[in-house]
Amino acid sequence: MNKETLTFEQITNMDLPNIILYAAPVMIALVAFEWYLSYRQKKDFYDGKDTVAALVIGLINVGMSAAIKVITFGIILFFYNLVPWTIPMTWWAFIICLFWLDFWRYWAHRIAHENRFWWATHVTHHNSEKYNWSVSFRLSWTQHIKIIFFIPVALAGFHPVVFFIVHQLAVLYQFWIHTEYITKLPRPIEYFFTTPSHHRVHHATNEKYLDKNYGSTFIIWDRIFGTFQPEEEKPNYGLTTQVNSYNPITLNFHEWSDIVRDVKNSRSLKEAYAMVFTRPSELEAKKKEFEAAYEKSRLKVNG
């Protein structure tokens, strides 16, 4: 039996709930509670301006997600209709989809740290020097282009509705792991799931913690692909070069601005390409490499 092709009208008529929008008031209330608790206990977990910036970034991002939901759904629907097979909308389809989606979330996240172009869509999430529940709101306004990494989920035959629900649940999972109040959990949980301990490592600037623990819901991908690092020493948070700004515009676009500047200052297409796609941690070394090559070429020309 041939798979029925879904139309955009069929999907939109389902009027699927925006789970993240409904959860937002609860998350904001929990942020307020954690903020109050850290204040009473005199812990340096929050900075007022930093938290307000995170809330502004998060609320605008929720609005953007709702506004472009049609586009997101359209992309997933298009690729779902390309394949002749489908996975029935059963309870186990949601579980399998969660694992398959999380696998691609791992690689999307990893690439966002290993490629400067994609880092620009993610750096907003890391430019806070604090680590608390409000940090989960700091999602870049340009992150939505990463939908291309999730096309394999549609091509696997998962119904767009299954994708839509599972994706929102996966995003919501990220909220609770952004805290310093939860230390280590029982070993089976720590081994299989991404926990606050794992994610603190991911947000740290300590040399041994850089580019580690990309797992979204499950930490097993890091264990499989060699990017796992347990939490040992106390993490320091933020970027290796801090932004020092609370302006949401700056926090979202500072890396894009730096990319444009570096491309404009490039002296060749090769250099311009490198300025866009080099691994962020290797950028300064790459700049010195091009500068040395340029100087060598200049001296050769001048005899």
Score class of each variant (00 low, 15 high):
residue 4 E to T: 06
residue 4 E to R: 09
residue 4 E to A: 14
residue 6 L to F: 07
residue 10 Q to L: 05
residue 10 Q to I: 04
residue 11 I to R: 00
residue 14 M to N: 02
residue 14 M to I: 01
residue 15 D to K: 15
residue 15 D to P: 00
residue 16 L to D: 00
residue 17 P to W: 09
residue 18 N to F: 11
residue 28 I to P: 00
residue 30 L to Y: 05
residue 33 F to T: 04
residue 33 F to L: 11
residue 35 W to L: 07
residue 37 L to S: 07
residue 39 Y to S: 10
residue 41 Q to R: 14
residue 43 K to W: 08
residue 44 D to A: 15
residue 48 G to L: 15
residue 49 K to D: 13
residue 51 T to P: 02
residue 56 V to Q: 10
residue 57 I to N: 13
residue 61 N to Y: 13
residue 62 V to A: 07
residue 69 K to N: 14
residue 71 I to L: 14
residue 72 T to I: 13
residue 76 I to D: 10
residue 78 F to T: 07
residue 79 F to C: 01
residue 79 F to M: 09
residue 80 Y to G: 05
residue 84 P to Y: 08
residue 86 T to D: 15
residue 88 P to K: 12
residue 88 P to Q: 06
residue 89 M to Q: 11
residue 90 T to P: 05
residue 94 F to V: 01
residue 95 I to P: 00
residue 98 L to M: 15
residue 101 L to P: 00
residue 102 D to K: 08
residue 104 W to Q: 12
residue 105 R to S: 10
residue 110 R to I: 08
residue 110 R to W: 15
residue 111 I to Y: 04
residue 115 N to R: 03
residue 125 H to R: 07
residue 128 S to E: 02
residue 132 N to F: 11
residue 133 W to D: 01
residue 133 W to N: 12
residue 134 S to D: 11
residue 134 S to E: 12
residue 134 S to N: 14
residue 135 V to G: 04
residue 136 S to Q: 03
residue 138 R to I: 02
residue 141 W to K: 10
residue 141 W to M: 13
residue 145 I to V: 15
residue 146 K to V: 14
residue 146 K to C: 11
residue 147 I to M: 11
residue 148 I to G: 12
residue 149 F to V: 14
residue 150 F to G: 09
residue 153 V to I: 15
residue 153 V to D: 06
residue 154 A to K: 07
residue 165 I to E: 01
residue 165 I to T: 04
residue 170 A to H: 10
residue 171 V to T: 10
residue 172 L to Q: 11
residue 172 L to W: 10
residue 172 L to K: 02
residue 173 Y to R: 07
residue 176 W to D: 12
residue 178 H to I: 12
residue 181 Y to D: 02
residue 182 I to S: 04
residue 187 R to G: 02
residue 189 I to R: 12
residue 193 F to W: 09
residue 193 F to V: 06
residue 194 T to F: 00
residue 196 P to W: 13
residue 197 S to G: 07
residue 199 H to T: 06
residue 200 R to D: 05
residue 201 V to M: 04
residue 202 H to S: 06
residue 205 T to A: 05
residue 207 E to S: 07
residue 215 G to Y: 06
residue 215 G to D: 10
residue 216 S to K: 04
residue 216 S to A: 06
residue 218 F to W: 08
residue 221 W to P: 01
residue 222 D to K: 03
residue 224 I to Q: 05
residue 225 F to Y: 00
residue 228 F to E: 06
residue 231 E to Y: 02
residue 231 E to P: 03
residue 233 E to A: 14
residue 235 P to I: 09
residue 236 N to K: 14
residue 237 Y to F: 15
residue 240 T to K: 12
residue 243 V to W: 06
residue 244 N to W: 01
residue 244 N to A: 07
residue 247 N to H: 13
residue 248 P to S: 05
residue 250 T to P: 02
residue 251 L to E: 00
residue 254 H to Q: 07
residue 257 S to A: 13
residue 258 D to F: 10
residue 259 I to C: 09
residue 261 R to D: 08
residue 262 D to I: 01
residue 263 V to S: 04
residue 267 R to T: 06
residue 267 R to G: 11
residue 270 K to C: 00
residue 276 V to D: 11
residue 278 T to Q: 06
residue 279 R to G: 02
residue 279 R to L: 13
residue 279 R to A: 09
residue 284 E to R: 11
residue 285 A to C: 03
residue 285 A to I: 07
residue 286 K to F: 03
residue 286 K to W: 02
residue 288 K to H: 10
residue 288 K to Y: 08
residue 289 E to A: 13
residue 290 F to V: 03
residue 291 E to L: 14
residue 291 E to K: 11
residue 292 A to Y: 04
residue 297 S to Q: 10
residue 297 S to L: 13
residue 297 S to E: 15
